[in-house]
Simulated assay, not measured.
Amino acid sequence: MLKLVVAPPRLAMRSSSFRKAAFSTAAAAAAATRFQGGVSMVQGASRGIGLEFVRQLLKRSEEGRVVATCRNPDGAADLLKLKKEYENRLNILPLDVTNETTIEAAASAVSETYGSLNLLVNTSGILSIPNVLQPETTLSKVQKSSLLLTYEVNAVGPILVIKHMWPLLKMGGGSGTEREFAVVANLSARVGSIGDNGLGGWHSYRASKAALNQLTKTVSVEFSRKKDPIVCILLHPGTVDTDLSRPFQRNVPEGKLFTKGFAVQKLLNIIDNVKSSDNGKFFAWDGQEIPW
């Protein structure tokens, strides 16, 4: 079942956070030379789709580096197994999307080790927590605490991660990869589409994913305006057999419940083929664009 660790009170952010991640062009060139295959970061990597992203990114390249983040690395047994197999190419860091100081610390660690990023995948999200949060089937069940908690984890967290990884992504661009730009891929959900909402319900989850979509689109516009070598996209993986979806799989049509391996393979194919003109777009697992 899903669990959420309540983060300690946030500390005031230091203005040095961006200075720590501001690197010279020489540093970028050095990073590109050292890390052929690029440097990818998967946020929310301890299990489910995030863990599968880490696994497939490591297997597809003999040189690429992967940074995997999660709230409690010491308790991430499957991630630690991968570390033993890919000791020199996998770096595991603590990061809690509800605690911005941990995001800042992760950015500093990535900058010190690699100097840049070429791919950022934000996968963490919540849908239900026993005795805390359940998808609402009716307006009468909507609670302020559920709305705020879901928004914090599903929308605010990923955008703060982008904020602190931004200088690293600018520095990395497409260096060491076959792309000309870095990619930010945020995992959203079709239920976050306002235009596609014909069933209602699931107020908190729908609203949080719609917020993530809007925030990501806004970030993509800024990156384009500033001519940063970064493309931001949103991805809907379909209904995947994970802890998040397991309590709600009963009504999934036959053939529409995907394995983690299948879903991530499809999403990586979209990432591999993304174009600069796709900046700010929302794609389903099969490559079809989803209406806002």
Rank of each mutant, 00 (worst) to 15 (best):
M1T: 13
L2A: 12
V5E: 12
A7Q: 09
A7S: 15
P9Y: 10
P9N: 11
R14N: 13
S17I: 13
K20E: 14
F23M: 15
S24Q: 05
A29L: 15
A30E: 13
A31C: 05
A45G: 03
S46C: 10
E52W: 02
F53E: 00
C70S: 12
A76F: 06
D78A: 10
L79A: 07
L93N: 03
L95Q: 06
V97G: 06
V97T: 13
N99M: 12
E100I: 11
S108N: 14
E112N: 13
T113Q: 15
G115M: 03
L117Q: 00
N118V: 06
L119E: 01
S124F: 10
Q134S: 15
Q134H: 09
Q134N: 15
E136R: 10
S140H: 09
Q143K: 15
K144L: 15
K144C: 14
L148F: 01
L149M: 12
Y151S: 11
V156R: 12
I162Y: 07
I162E: 05
K163W: 05
H164P: 00
G173E: 03
G173A: 02
S175Y: 10
S175Q: 15
G176L: 11
A182C: 03
A185G: 00
N186I: 06
V191H: 05
L199K: 05
G201K: 01
A207L: 15
L212V: 09
Q214G: 08
S220N: 09
S220M: 07
C232S: 13
I233V: 11
G238Q: 07
T242F: 12
S245P: 03
P247Y: 12
F248Y: 08
N251K: 14
P253C: 09
G261L: 03
A263I: 12
V264N: 09
V264K: 01
K266F: 04
K275W: 09
K281I: 00
